[in-house]
C-alpha cells in the first residue's frame, strides 16, 4: 500500500527559530495518525505546511504521489486535504447550515445537492437541530464541531484536525472520538490529528509522531510510543506534574 501523505525531511524556520526540524513521516490511506507534543513543539506549523498556508524551507510533502508543498491552501483543499483551525474560524454572520454549504459547494455546483449534503454532515455531527443558528451564537464545543463539519463537507480524502478536543468536557470528548471513528470507518476519510487529550489519542490513533522543539523524538504505535523514555520525560511526564 502506498502512502496517502508523505512528509520528507520537512523543516521550517521563523527568523532564528527552528519551528519544525527535519520531520519525516507517512500516513497510510484509511488510518488515523496522531501528532503530539508540548505547546510550541511545531505541530500547527507542520499542519500549516501540509495545508499550504506556509511553504517549508526544506523537504517535500506529497499527497497521493503529487507534490503539494508550496501550493496554495485552496489548491491543496481541492486535491482532497481539508483542515480545521486550532483557533476556530467560523463564518460568524452566516447560519450553521450555510457555513457547511460553503464546504459542500467545493465539489458540487448545484445548490440543492450542496444543501442536502450539508444537512447530512450536520446530522452526523449532532448539529442538525442548530442549523438555523448564526455561527456566532454557538458555544465553543459546537463551534469546534462546526469547524469539523465544514471541513468534512468538502469530501476530503485526508482530514487535518488541529486540537478539536481542546476545551471539551470528557463526555463531549467521548462523543467526538465516536464521531471521528465513524468519519474514518464509514466515510473512509484518513485522519491526521494534533491532540493533547491522550485519552482520545490512545482511543483513535493507529500510529503517532511525537514532536519536541520541532524535532521528531518518537514514532510508531501508540502503546510503544507512550512507553518511550524520551517521550515520558519531555511530554507525558510534564502533563502529570
Amino acid at each position: 500500500m502506498s502512502a496517502l501523505l508523505s512528509v520528507v525531511d520537512v523543516g521550517k524556520r521563523f527568523r532564528g527559530l527552528i519551528a519544525v526540524d527535519r520531520v519525516s513521516f507517512t500516513v497510510e490511506a484509511g488510518e488515523i495518525f496522531a501528532v503530539i507534543g508540548p505547546n510550541g513543539a511545531g505541530k500547527t506549523t507542520l499542519f500549516n505546511m501540509i495545508a499550504g498556508v506556509l511553504a517549508p524551507n526544506e523537504g517535500t510533502i506529497t499527497f497521493r504521489g503529487e507534490r503539494i508543498s508550496g501550493r496554495t491552501p485552496d489548491a491543496v483543499c481541492r486535491l482532497g486535504v481539508a483542515r480545521t483551525f486550532q483557533i476556530v474560524r467560523p463564518f460568524p454572520a452566516l447560519t450553521v447550515e450555510d457555513n457547511v454549504v460553503i464546504g459542500a459547494l467545493l465539489h458540487r455546483t448545484e445548490m440543492a445537492a450542496a444543501r442536502r449534503h450539508a444537512r447530512d454532515v450536520l446530522a452526523t455531527l449532532d448539529l442538525f437541530d442548530k442549523r438555523d443558528f448564526r455561527a456566532s451564537a454557538l458555544t465553543l464545543p459546537d463551534r469546534k464541531r462546526l469547524e469539523l463539519a465544514r471541513a468534512l463537507a468538502t469530501d476530503p480524502k485526508l482530514l487535518l484536525l488541529d486540537e478539536v478536543m481542546a476545551g471539551l468536557r470528557p463526555t463531549e470528548t467521548d462523543r467526538m472520538v465516536e464521531i471521528l471513528r465513524g468519519v474514518n470507518r464509514d466515510m473512509g476519510v484518513t485522519i491526521l490529528l494534533i491532540e493533547h487529550v491522550m485519552r482520545a489519542v490512545m482511543a483513535l490513533a493507529g500510529h503517532m509522531l511525537v514532536l519536541h522543539h520541532g524535532a521528531p523524538i518518537a514514532k510508531g504505535k501508540p502503546e510503544d510510543v507512550v512507553r518511550d523514555q524520551k517521550v515520558i520525560t519531555s511530554y507525558l511526564g510534564q502533563e502529570s506534574i
Binding site: 491552501p73 485552496d74 483551525f85 474560524r89 460568524p92 454572520a93 460553503i102 464546504g103 467545493l106
Partner: peptide, 15 residues
Amino acid sequence: LAIREDETAARALGI
C-alpha cells in the same frame, strides 16, 4: 459570503 466573513477560512475550504 465566505470571503467577506473570513478569507483565510474561505481559502481553507478550497475557494
